[in-house]
Amino acid sequence: MTAAQIALAVVLTLVFLPLGAAKIAAVPFMRQAAAHLGMSPGLYRVVGALEMAGAVGLVLGLASAPIGVAAAIGLALLMTAAAVVHLRHPDPLVRALPAAVLALTAVAYAGVEIGTG
């Protein structure tokens, strides 16, 4: 386990746990975001659950590389889909940027994990 793997896992976990929890709890900001994108609160909760599962998978990946890689790939796919949803919704590019950066960060984690494994 390298410092880069640990750092990427920690950063991604610290981003996805609270965001996923906020979506599951349907806090007002997240309800507004779901409505803006035309998503039901139930679907947004599913997205939040997937984010939290991915974050947990990254933590477990510190002990088991295949779990971490699978979680990172899942999060990368989820964030790629989020970026596409923002772009198709005609949001400005800046609204899709965080999801794209998170997708690339998750891919970087998977790449570092696979490269050192």
Rank of each mutant, 00 (worst) to 15 (best):
M1W: 12
T2A: 12
A3K: 05
A3D: 06
A4R: 02
I6W: 14
L8Q: 03
A9P: 05
V10S: 09
V11K: 13
L14R: 11
L14F: 10
F16G: 14
F16R: 09
P18Y: 10
A21E: 06
A21Q: 11
K23W: 02
P28T: 12
R31A: 09
H36N: 09
L37W: 07
G38W: 08
P41C: 01
P41W: 01
Y44V: 00
Y44F: 08
G48C: 02
A49N: 00
L50P: 05
L50G: 01
E51K: 14
E51F: 02
G54D: 04
A55W: 14
G57R: 12
A63K: 14
S64K: 07
S64Y: 10
A65E: 12
A65S: 15
A65R: 15
G68S: 05
V69P: 05
A70Y: 00
A72S: 05
L75P: 06
L78Y: 05
L78R: 07
A82N: 11
A83K: 04
H86F: 10
R88E: 13
P90R: 06
R95E: 02
R95Y: 04
A96F: 04
A96K: 01
A108C: 14
A108E: 15
Y109N: 11
A110W: 02
V112H: 13
V112P: 05
I114F: 05
G115R: 13
G115S: 14
T116Q: 08
G117H: 11
